[in-house]
Simulated scan of single mutants.
Amino acid sequence: MNSVNVTELRQHLPDYLKQVQQGEEIAITLHGKTIARIVPDRNESKREAALKRLEALRGTVIVGDIIAPSDEEWTGDADNL
């Protein structure tokens, strides 16, 4: 967790907010004592959670039509006959 005094925070607020947005916590100090913390919002919407789950599945599934008939003969069990 980064620590920053009030004056520094005021001068560079957009930079510190970007750090918080990326998941970092920032302690705000006044005369060397921590008076507050800025923490990222961990409450994500249902939509964002669903998008993250879908993104995690990307590349791990096979897309295809399993219902439509195929002209190919099934040979998956040919070695067991």
Rank of each mutant, 00 (worst) to 15 (best):
V4F: 03
V4Y: 02
N5V: 14
V6P: 00
V6C: 02
V6S: 09
T7H: 11
T7P: 00
E8D: 07
L9C: 00
R10H: 03
R10E: 08
R10D: 04
L13A: 04
Y16W: 08
L17G: 03
K18A: 12
K18S: 08
Q19Y: 04
Q19M: 15
V20Y: 05
A27I: 13
I28V: 15
T29E: 08
H31L: 14
H31W: 12
H31I: 05
H31T: 04
G32K: 13
I35A: 01
A36C: 15
R37S: 12
V39I: 14
V39R: 02
P40E: 05
P40T: 05
D41T: 14
R42A: 05
R42D: 06
R47D: 02
R47Y: 04
R47K: 13
R47W: 05
E48T: 05
A49K: 09
A50G: 02
L51C: 01
R53T: 08
R53Q: 09
L54M: 10
A56K: 10
T60K: 12
T60G: 15
I62K: 15
V63I: 11
V63K: 07
V63E: 14
I66C: 04
S70W: 08
E72P: 04
E72A: 14
T75N: 07
G76R: 07
A78R: 14
A78Y: 08
D79T: 09
N80W: 12
